[in-house]
Nucleic acid binder design. Sequence first.
DNA 1: ATGGTCGACTCTCGA
Length: 260
Amino acid sequence: MRIATFNVNSLKARLPIVERFLSGAGAPDILCLQETKCQDAYFPVDFFEGLGYRCVYSGMKSYNGVAVVSRATPDRVSRGFGDGMDTESDRARLIIADFGDLSVACSYVPQGKSMDSPDFQYKLRFFDRLRSLFEARFKPSGKLLWTGDINVAREDIDVTHPNNKRDHVCFCQEAKDALERVISWGFVDVFRHHRPNPGEFSFWDYRVKDAFERNIGWRIDHLLATRPLSDASEDAYAVRDLRALERPSDHTAVVGVFGL
DNA sequence: ATGGTCGACTCTCGA
């Protein structure tokens, strides 16, 4: 089965691209969406059901918003961390869906704005809360995929110009350390396992001229799998075709193929 | 290359 993650930067604006992705060859069985920017009351349920998919979602006005779209109906869904401290933003940034013994955590990790911003502290806390949630609800010996826009590039090969980004909220050591503390709970970077070479990106900044054409990008959308799940992984790839369509998102979809 | 653009929504913010 295929599991994909895609930061759509407004679901409404990207419906034609999502439709193409879900209708074509290699359509994912499970698609995790971020930055839907869509309130729950307006989520396009009928659009997805018309394509043969179920959907669960957690959005808010204007910003954030995540969803899990799937051919199968999830057995259980949770929104936010459920730690008694959830804000509207938290609930619109994390949704977990269970499909039998497979759990899929779809997250939109806060970007952080700048290292001296309170938003950056929120980002660091977000990672800590994710680790606590994984510790409490899951086991590294189970099948869990943590995916989404994680907003951290792990290594120098995950960005085009690493030396210009040492103070960036998505590349500074503090952010990397926070991500690594979650990964060290028991995740394998499935995409990097299958694609060891530089130049594999999932995000190209709109503000950089011809960023996609020149491949000036970042790998910040991740597929992180517990060992039993990564052992079942057969391939992973970024769907560059979606960027060739009209009005592309600044991210593209990243797909993992699993022998499940 | 965070100078730049894009989307949602207010006339600016977040990314």
